[in-house]
């Protein structure tokens, strides 16, 4: 068998692994994005409890290794109380990645909102907008534009961080690649695997560049 046809026979497995990688990435960053908006607003809140809770959350998830968070969630929590057992490795991974990316995204969102000129808040106030209206109609739409690059970045980072799920037994693209490599006793499989990663990255980049263009109409 020549190299090319060997690669072809591995392809279905690799694509299956890639699917796991992509699904976890998109869901984790997608849900994380929603969660992060609340965290960011919470961290800017003047209500002491909310502010401190959100700050502590962000500090914790950015300050400890993702690998350790996954381990702890999947293997550690059940030891504290059986009710905390998460049976599905996939669900455990989703939770860990979502909570983690929310913390990183929240800091980006906060920076995005705080980079909006103070005059925008003042102008909104002088025409009578409430705080919530100001956020929804004026600040967030402008912040979204500034957030597209860092969110795109988060997707690309996450894509590669997902390779850590192997430790709780999930077969993502990296795990599948390593399995094929050891069973076939060749490093050849790394080449198509890396190409698949690059294709996914390129797709993310394309989507985010398009979004950026679309949201830049008013600049």
């Amino acid at each position: 068998m020549n190299d090319f046809s060997r690669i072809l026979t591995w392809l279905p497995q690799l694509l299956l692994g890639a699917r796991t990688t992509i699904v976890i990435t998109i869901l984790a960053v997608g849900i994380g994005l929603i969660l992060s908006l609340f965290l960011a607003l919470g961290k800017m809140s003047r209500i002491f409890v909310i502010n401190k809770f959100c700050s502590a959350y962000i500090f914790f998830f950015r300050g400890t290794p993702l690998l350790m968070q996954i381990y702890f969630l999947y293997f550690g929590l059940p030891q504290f109380h059986p009710a905390l057992t998460i049976r599905s490795a996939f669900v455990a991974a989703m939770i860990a990645y979502t909570l983690n990316s929310a913390a990183y995204l929240a800091e980006n969102i906060r920076a995005g909102i705080q980079s909006i000129d103070k005059g925008q808040f003042e102008a909104a106030k002088t025409i009578g907008m409430s705080g919530a209206q100001t956020m929804r109609l004026v600040i967030i739409p402008q912040a979204v534009r500034r957030l597209i690059p860092p969110v795109g970045n988060e997707f690309i980072m996450m894509l590669k961080d997902v390779s850590l799920v192997a430790i709780i037994g999930l077969a993502d693209l990296t795990k599948v690649t390593r399995a094929i490599s050891s069973s076939s006793a060749t490093a050849l499989v790394y080449i198509p695997a890396m190409i698949i990663y690059l294709i996914i990255t390129a797709l993310f980049q394309f989507v985010f560049n398009t979004l950026e263009k679309k949201y830049s109409v008013y600049e």
Partner: peptide
């Protein structure tokens, strides 16, 4: 410094208060 809302068109800027507040 004007402080127009850059994410809204000229017309939307002028309409924002009446529509959303009034």
């Amino acid at each position: 410094r004007f402080n127009l809302f850059p994410n809204m068109t000229v017309k939307e800027n002028v309409m924002a208060g009446p529509v959303h507040v009034k």
